[in-house]
């Protein structure tokens, strides 16, 4: 255990990065998911096709590949664009944090699209009819009837999407993100104890997973309490 002395604060900062990635990717994932779901549910054939392609592409491609493509690809793209303005620029570096965060948001967003779509479709049509019959506007129906029912339906799979975001963060270490895996790699070269170091990484991620799972359970309880159930 003393091999870990001196590394705890590095792990701490690494864990903080994991947290940062989570917060940023969570927002983006919800955005992509909602856009995709609304596109699929819209009347526009074009939107449906694009959203369809989105889900097929990113659910069928390995996450590591998307991360690599986005990271290396965007570096090249941005370099080319920058060279238009300033031909002396040799290379534009894309921070692994953003390449990775955007990549995992896009990927998990494609799953979230299906989840949100299913949840919107799962809203009881009777409730909507009742709202219309009572004279509520479309917007009011959306806010007060559709959304409350929809997020409760989406919650369990959404919890899984949040867990996916956390676990996919470890993949971003491959492109150099300075989170816990990265810290472990450095620690290993110094201490020569790969097992111990990676176990700590696992424990940190398990901790994050547990927090998210408990949070989701709490929200589910809240959702149940404030729903008029069959009891």
């Amino acid at each position: 255990m003393d091999v870990l002395t001196g590394w705890w604060d590095d792990y701490f900062w690494g864990a903080l990065i994991v947290g940062k990635v989570f917060i940023c990717s969570l927002g983006l994932m919800i955005l992509f998911g909602l856009l995709g779901a609304m596109a699929k549910l819209s009347n526009s054939r074009v939107a449906q096709k694009i959203a369809g392609a989105y889900t097929v592409v990113f659910r069928g491609t390995p996450e590591i590949l998307v991360i690599l493509l986005l990271y290396f690809g965007s570096a090249i793209a941005l370099t080319s664009i920058a060279q238009i303005f300033n031909p002396d620029i040799k290379f534009v570096d894309v921070p692994p944090f953003w390449a990775g965060t955007i990549a995992i948001s896009i990927i998990v967003g494609s799953y979230a699209t299906e989840t949100f779509r299913g949840a919107f479709l799962g809203v009881n049509p009777g409730s909507i009819e009742a709202a219309r019959a009572l004279g509520m506007s479309d917007l009011q129906t959306f806010i007060y009837v559709r959304i409350p029912e929809m997020w409760r339906l989406a919650l369990p799979p959404f919890g899984n999407h949040m867990l996916s975001l956390i676990k996919d963060t470890a993949l971003i270490s491959i492109i150099g993100l300075n989170e816990t895996m990265f810290v472990a790699k450095q620690a290993i070269t110094v201490t020569g104890k790969p097992f111990t170091m990676y176990i700590v990484v696992g424990a940190i991620y398990l901790g994050f997973s547990t927090i998210v799972t408990l949070f989701v359970m709490g929200v589910e309880k809240f959702g149940e309490r404030t729903t008029i159930g069959a009891k």
């Binding site: 676990k167 470890a170 895996m181 790969p194 176990i199 696992g202 991620y205």
Partner: peptide, 14 residues
């Protein structure tokens, strides 16, 4: 609850 990459590394490197 843990990333599969970590599991792979624990087994191969650890």
């Amino acid at each position: 609850g843990t990333p599969i990459l970590v599991q792979i590394f624990i087994i191969y490197y650890g």
